[in-house]
Design a protein around this nucleic acid. Structure first.
Length: 575
DNA sequence: CGGACAAGCTGA
DNA sequence: CAGCTTGTCCGG
């Protein structure tokens, strides 16, 4: 008697149940198959995660009611089980991500004969796929990533992941024009499972392929690769594990590699300094401390000149969050914490850092002036002010708005960097907001913004007209310096030293614990030497820190879960 | 999740 | 004590 272990597709049940497979489906069903079963009086969908011959004793098994569709391969099911443990989440959530979006009755037979050969594969890109393990390629923003997509597809049945669906479609179409056999993850599930490579956004990392030959992650530093809902799995980490299990090469490409990638890479391929400098645009830094503080405007003379030059300029102002910054009215210095990493706000006539409670008198730390002024300006007012400065209408672009206004000059949040296709210049009106954000990954996230800006204006070879302008009160910050010198490697080294000292990822692992029973969950962990419990913060959240991700997963899996809605976010992206 | 069932609360 | 709410348990 064939018995299937089935994980139901029902929120709230994180458990597998056994069912008998009727003989007529014995050859149809396999590990990963989507089935329908009766559970507790209702008919529900589920995945076969195991097949066996011996039923467990003492339980009268029901039969599988229907085999609905082919699903993830056994390889992917095991990977999902690993990820469910790694990110302390539900297996069913991951299996859903790994499943076709339409029913696939059968996976077609692979075509006979040899696979078509791919022309035009460049030597340097192919070399990255020449050895097993993780190869991290630092590729300047102006360089052609597609060479790696082509080289990946040339290995056979590759899985290729990009940060967004749009990029996946673009690379997929180009690859197909070059004669590559490549399918879009999700939409072309059954073709991809038959033969050829798969390209997709983050969920593409779960795609079913005939016989995995390589994994490629494009822009591995990009936040789009991490799922924001629980479990907060990261496509880069899943890609690395998938390749490792299959014993195939994993290639990660990024202009500004993440510390996580640098920590796990077996091989690092860096461009020459000359190529890297050419690949990044010219970056100009405007030191806002030198501005006339009385003007207090977001628009330095350099910025006004740039905007009046007749070029297409995108002005970026991330006014997300309610951060109100205080700056000295005399010297322009920002009111920061003693270690310079946090922003102080004015609370009851003193300066206070909300997260740590650090307090000091309302006095500028640099010049001793007692007059501080509030600086904050949203994109609407910025667009108005800029319009009057330039003498032509400047449009505002927010995340919610659709399309892109035709104006030559645009002011917008970070969303503008995703929306626009190209520009002569990108100006960050207030880069300090990014640099001083109270998140441990703030530096990397700021670097990611610079990468986007660099792609929009192009590398130096495009001509001296294109540039990035950064307005900041922190001109010596490692992120700003990296952009000016086109040296993300130097940034990574400095950032790593800071992270290592704090024991933050990748030199340790974090989980954010929230929800009503958070305190109760965390309580027994307080006394453990292998777990640091940080918090609670004002909103009742805790952070758990351990030596590494595997250990964190073990701790979370073995801890007692109190009743109530507890939220556990492993590797929280915005802490 | 959603049904079953037990325990707790209310009102006449 | 019926009738209702709230909590806990469990499913193959």
């Amino acid at each position: 008697m064939l018995v299937a272990r089935v994980v139901p597709d029902v929120a709230g049940i994180d458990k597998a149940f056994d069912y008998v497979i009727p003989p007529r489906w014995a050859t149809t069903v396999s590990i990963g198959s989507l089935v329908r079963v009766d559970l507790n009086g209702r008919r529900i969908g589920g995945w076969v995660v195991g097949l066996g011959a011996d039923p467990p004793a003492g339980i009268q098994l029901r039969a599988v009611a229907k085999v609905s569709s082919a699903g993830p391969s056994a390889e992917v099911i095991e990977l999902a089980e690993w990820a469910a443990h790694r990110w302390s989440g539900r297996l069913a959530t991951l299996l859903k991500t790994a499943s076709p979006d339409r029913m696939v009755p059968v996976i077609p037979r692979a075509p006979d004969g040899a696979d078509p050969a791919l022309d035009g594969v460049e030597e340097f890109a192919a070399a990255a796929f020449g050895r097993p393990g993780v190869t991290l390629v630092r590729l300047p923003p102006g360089a052609d990533v597609h060479a790696f997509v082509l080289a990946a597809a040339a290995t056979g049945d590759a899985v290729i992941v990009t940060p967004s669906v749009g990029e996946a479609r673009h690379h997929g179409a180009t690859l197909r024009r070059n004669g590559g056999r490549v399918y879009l993850a999700g939409r072309d599930f059954s073709q991809a499972a038959t033969a050829g490579s798969v390209i997709g956004a983050r969920s593409g990392v779960w795609a079913r392929v005939r016989k995995l030959s390589a994994v490629l992650v494009i822009d591995e530093h990009d936040e789009g690769l991490q799922e924001e809902r629980n479990p907060t799995w990261h496509a880069r980490d899943v890609a690395i594990e998938r390749a490792r299990r299959a014993g195939v090469p994993c290639v990660l490409v990024s202009p500004a590699p993440s510390l996580s990638a640098l920590a796990v890479a077996d091989h690092l391929i860096s461009p020459s300094r000359a190529d890297e400098r050419r690949g990044w645009p010219t970056t100009r830094v405007v030191d806002r401390r030198k501005e006339d503080p009385a003007r207090g405007s977001l628009f330095s003379p350099q910025l006004v000149d740039l905007v009046r030059s007749g070029r297409r300029v995108l002005c970026i102002l991330n006014r997300k969050g309610r951060a109100r910054m205080l700056a000295c009215a005399m010297c322009g210095e920002l009111a920061r914490t003693g270690d310079g990493t946090g922003l102080m706000s004015e609370i009851e006539g003193a300066l206070q850092h909300e997260a740590t409670g650090e307090t000091r008198p309302l006095v500028c730390a640099v010049c001793g002036a007692t007059k501080l002024k509030r600086i904050r300006l949203g994109i609407s007012r910025a667009a108005e002010e800029l319009s009057s400065l330039v003498g032509e209408p400047v449009a505002e672009v927010s995340a919610s708005a659709e399309g892109l206004p035709p104006n030559r000059v645009l002011v917008g949040t970070e969303a503008l960097l995703h929306r626009a296709a190209a520009a002569d210049a990108v100006a960050f009106l207030d880069f300090d907001q990014e640099l001083l954000a109270a998140r441990y990954r703030a530096g990397e996230q700021a670097m990611a913004l610079l990468v986007r800006a660099a792609r929009l204006v192009g590398g130096k070879q495009k001509g001296s007209q294109s540039e990035i302008l950064i307005q900041t009160r922190l001109p010596d910050h490692r992120v700003v310096r990296a952009a000016v010198r086109a040296d993300p490697g130097e940034f990574a080294a400095e950032e790593a030293a800071i992270r290592r000292a704090a024991g933050f990822p990748p030199f340790g692992a974090l989980a954010e614990i929230s929800g009503a029973p958070a305190a109760q969950f965390v309580e027994p962990l307080q006394s453990r030497l292998d777990v640091d419990v940080l918090g609670p913060r004002a909103d009742g959240r805790y952070l758990l820190r351990t030596e590494n991700a595997d250990h964190l997963a073990e701790v979370l899996a073995s801890a007692v879960r109190p009743k109530g809605r507890l939220r556990v976010a492993v590797d929280p992206p915005r802490v």
